[in-house]
């Protein structure tokens, strides 16, 4: 990682983490640090160990070697990769939100408002669209007032327009709450604008850096081949300057689109 941030500004870090299963190395010598107010995105092909790395940082999997450090008292909000709600379990959005944390209806409503799905508070979970469901899960994570938000493939099951809106929401959450965000993604086109630091993972860290540098990295080009070159067609600055009022207005369109489809 660029520079060596002091521990006091870190939320969590892993040092030299290696994980082996059945004599196969799933993760090899991973170093990663997450700071407040920054979005770190882990990208990589299927089977690269992205979700596994997330689970190590969440403390769900103990690494074979290396250390995991989390700031004492760190509160973490997590949106897992695959959450298939079986329709045989009747569950309302409100109930899903408060499964492990008791919260008043007001608090739940506020969290859902922040992600734009407050009107769904009493809906059945299995009636939600893909985009609504992901927004509910993010709101659910926000309910814990996280210092660190961990989002494993947050745009799955969401259409292309909805994807852009979701990534915009994620940057807004970072700006508003100042929390650190660790995100896993395999689509490069949209994620670049919403991230401060990109880590390309394929069991080991192949390359990392600011998004505009990473896309020029030869290891990155090798990892993603044609996808990487097609990405280069889109100039990065169009999506990165979210604080520019003009860009804001342009970006807003897909958001309203996404919401009207709800």
């Amino acid at each position: 990682m660029k520079g060596d941030p002091k521990r006091s500004d870190l939320l969590a870090s892993v040092k030299h983490v290696t994980l082996s299963r059945n004599r196969r190395e799933i993760l090899k010598d991973i170093n990663l640090a997450i700071q407040p107010g920054r979005v770190v995105t882990v990208i990589g092909p299927n089977g690269a160990g992205k979700s596994t790395l997330v689970k190590v940082i969440l403390g769900l999997i103990t690494p074979s070697q290396g250390q995991l450090w989390r700031r004492p008292g760190l509160s973490v909000g997590y949106v897992p990769q695959k959450l298939n709600m079986d329709p045989v379990l009747p569950l309302s959005v409100h109930r899903l939100m408060t499964l492990t944390k008791r919260a008043s209806r007001d608090e739940v409503h506020k969290a859902l408002t922040e992600t734009g799905v407050a009107q769904r508070i009493d809906s059945a979970v299995h009636g939600l669209s893909g985009g609504e469901f992901q927004r509910v899960l993010i709101a659910r994570a926000l309910l814990r007032r996280p210092d660190l938000l961990v989002l494993d493939e947050p745009v799955q099951g969401v259409d292309f327009v909805g994807e852009a809106a979701l990534y915009k929401l994620i940057s807004e959450i970072r700006d508003r709450r100042g929390c650190g965000i660790l995100m896993v993604s395999h689509d490069l086109h949209v994620v670049m604008g919403a991230t401060d630091w990109v880590v390309c993972l394929n069991r080991k860290i192949c390359c990392e850096g600011e998004p505009e540098r990473v896309i020029q990295h030869p290891e990155y080009a090798e990892m993603f081949g044609h996808q990487a070159s097609s990405f280069a067609v889109f100039p990065h600055h169009e999506t990165s300057h979210a604080d520019d009022p003009l860009d804001e207005a342009v970006c807003d369109e897909p958001v309203t689109h996404g919401r009207s489809a709800l």
């Binding site: 403390g59 769900l60 973490v76 897992p80 959450l83 379990l89 569950l91 499964l99 492990t100 961990v150």
Partner: peptide, 19 residues
Amino acid sequence: WRPLLAITVHEDLARAEGV
């Protein structure tokens, strides 16, 4: 009841949240 329901919805999520 509550922890059971939580691990039924998603075990890793429940564990990450302290169940």
